[in-house]
Design a protein around this nucleic acid. Structure first.
Lengths: 145, 145
DNA sequence: CTAAATTAAATTGTGTACAATTAATTTGAT
DNA sequence: ATCAAATTAATTGTACACAATTTAATTTAG
């Protein structure tokens, strides 16, 4: 007789991870709508604000996204006027992404988003800190090649 | 001068949640390929194995998915022969989902997936347990209406 | 008792995600 | 120096995910 206990959703680690992730992204929506950004576009902009200039490859490494996802996201951000895309002069294979003035200005509007989000999360700070630490520890095990 | 420190990816809770969720789902893939299931189809089957019979509404409540996602997933599972879909006799609005023999048989093949996944995760059991507990605590704050 | 409100699925439209492939460029080993 | 191997984006195809709308059935209020 097989042990099906492990097949229950409540015993999985992945399922609550998947649900919490989706739920938090969903709660960003009203705030990100004001910036005309989706969540994926938002984290892309966050990486750009922090690094000023990145290749598509570097963005993919930072965001854990491949070109199949990033290419359309970057084209959309370009269309919205927040970033510029141009081939690297050193290496024609590379796509260099930079922020436009409008992209930089958006950072001001975005500055209040983390705090607003914090108010949406009904959990003790200590628990959030532990979760933050464990998730980063977990991420560190995803040895990126 | 605005404080942009909070806009760094490393200070976010959502970003590692989002990355870890995607990575774990990605690691399920080789095991789920053997069952001819995607991750979404897998958690749907897990709910069905646990509850034997559910309406689409109940499945959505359990899996935190809406009909826009579930309808095509259930149609695919029906096409693969794992579930049957039929209207409730009590309430024609409701869609009752049941498992086929093949759907039940799949549970045997799926029984080893959780253990195989456990071996893929390079983190101490204690950390995983804490994370599990905190994620469930977090989920409990998503007061479902 | 019936019109209005509610509920449940399905549909539509947009935007990811990711695997696999393709195309262009660069690198490296001989 | 040269060509095979590696690297980088882009493309293609499949499958979600969710907001918003639509359609049909049921419930509720007056």
């Amino acid at each position: 007789m097989a042990d099906y206990e492990q097949l229950k959703l409540s015993n999985q680690l992945c399922f609550p991870l998947y649900v919490c992730s989706k739920e938090v992204v969903r709660r960003y929506k009203p705030f990100l709508d004001e910036l005309d950004l989706t969540y994926t576009q938002y984290i892309t902009m966050m990486a750009m604000w922090e690094h000023r200039q990145l290749t598509a490859k570097e963005l993919g490494d930072i965001l854990y996204l491949d070109s199949g996802t990033l290419t359309p996201v970057l084209k959309t951000l370009e269309k919205k006027g927040f970033v510029a895309r141009q081939r690297s002069q050193d290496d024609e294979r590379s796509l260099v992404v930079t922020l436009t003035d409008e992209g930089w200005q958006l950072q001001d509007k975005a500055a209040s988003v983390p705090e607003k989000m914090g108010q949406c999360i009904d959990m003790e700070l200590e628990d959030l800190q532990i979760m933050h630490r464990l998730l980063h520890k977990f991420m560190d095990t995803f040895i990126k090649k």
